[in-house]
Nucleic acid binder design. Structure first.
Lengths: 252, 252
DNA sequence: GAGAATCGTTCCACGGTGCTGAACACTTAT
DNA sequence: ATAAGTGTTCAGCACCGTGGAACGATTCTC
């Protein structure tokens, strides 16, 4: 499921944890079936994980523990982007009433670091922590555009350009050309390339030396994301916010 | 560091991850020294963890990866308390301008599930994901008070009543008596028992069958937490909010 | 109620595997 | 140029994680 050869016991432990999150808690037998291992092995792992408090054993069921919260908060704060940008995202939400999100790149995929939405905003599928192909989002494309040439090629070579949707860009040349204009405008658009009915605008967030550390976006239902608002107003807001974040980031 | 006997490789992997968060990223040698293992062993673990994307290898340094965010979000959402209560906490913050937080119990300790603060509110040390002894917080005491007698004894037996502060309750009888009055009033107070200069009020959040699933609090600097506000006004707010959360929780 | 089929847990012997220390290339100080 | 520091690779041995079978305890099914 995970890699090809690493420490077997560790790979298995994480397979079990991941299965546990997918199943939203489960018993030993159910888990054993799900990961394709004998009950005793799974039991052994669960015991270990529980003793380390990464797993909780309640009401005859095992669940993933909140100790992961401690680690993930620390991981998120190591991207110092998060601490600086979070309040700005909240402000964008207040100003626009739509969805605003923060993304960082990791292992060639886009990770939602933070997300907030106005009360009238679209219900959306993505959650904080979700990992999506980087070429199918405004947030991702804008990161990709500002990454060093070499890294960009590595990522595309490794992950390819799978079609997530009938609008997804799957051609390298088409993508390359779009990334070019993204670099010029410092703005990326997503016209329902990942989710039908959802459009978004995103801007890059650069550090002092000019390398991307993440991106910020505004997203909403297509019928509200049109004309001048989509072409001018929202891009200006998101670009302005990105600049504020960059400034605050450098003085921290 | 972790347990006494479980799967060695798994325990070590998590030791390494924890060290990585403590050190805010590190190299192989530094890590090896920190966990007291040969470089090669640590290297092997880091490779495994990186391949599974739980660790990132950048600029010649290893850091904890954002994949933990995915798991922790899932773990947090399994406590369905979080989804329901989060907006209510935000409202309390808006109403009072102080700090409001959400806690759940796990492995006998109190875990901060969510926290928010007004712009004028006290700077505070605790973060989401932090795990604190359960007897030294209003949030924790109120959970302890409403836990089944047996569980409560287990927790106290296992963890004891360590003094976090010169005000911390360390006597079992004194604690038992306070828990009694907490059960009566459905309100717990923390009078600088964990942090000097910080007072707080907390109320329990019960599910349909009457068992605690968590607690909610308002906290602030002692000089603002006094008189009628501390004795009546804030307790009423926190209790009312807890009730709203309980209602929303049952209809979800 | 008896029986079958779950469940979770415990045990032990075997074989595979994670551990280790040494050797490697490489950069940075001295 | 030497030395001390990195990170990485390799291979053999001891050990430890593995998985099958057997255990009680529940919960179904008839």
């Amino acid at each position: 499921m995970t890699g090809e050869n690493g420490i077997q016991a560790v790979d298995r432990a994480f397979d079990i944890v991941e299965s546990l999150t997918e199943l939203n808690g489960a018993g030993v037998s159910e888990l054993a079936r799900h990961v394709g291992l004998p009950k005793s092995t799974v039991h052994n792992h669960l015991n270990t994980l529980e003793r380390a408090e990464y797993v909780v054993h309640e009401d005859g069921e095992y669940r993933t523990g909140l100790k992961f919260l401690q680690i993930s908060e620390s991981a998120r704060n190591q991207h110092d982007l998060y601490q600086v940008a979070r309040p700005e995202v909240d402000q964008v939400v207040e100003k626009t009433g739509e969805i605003s999100a923060l993304m960082a790149e990791e292992h060639g995929r886009g990770v939602f670091i933070y997300r907030n939405r106005g009360s009238e905003a679209a219900r959306i599928d993505t959650c904080v922590g979700d990992r999506v192909p980087i070429h199918c989002t405004a947030l991702g494309k804008v990161i990709l555009a500002f990454l060093p040439e070499q890294r960009r090629q590595e990522i595309i070579d490794h992950h390819g350009l799978p079609a997530v949707n009938h609008n997804t860009i799957t051609d390298r040349d088409v993508l390359a050309q779009e990334l070019e204009t993204i670099r010029d405008e410092k703005i990326a658009y997503d016209d329902e390339e990942r989710l039908n009915g959802l459009r978004s605008v995103a801007a890059p967030i650069l550090d002092g030396s000019g390398s991307v550390i993440g991106s910020i976006s505004i997203a909403g239902p297509t019928h509200r994301m049109q004309g001048d608002r989509f072409q001018t107003e929202l891009p200006e807001i998101v670009l302005g916010t990105a600049n504020v974040i960059e400034l605050n980031h450098q003085h921290s």
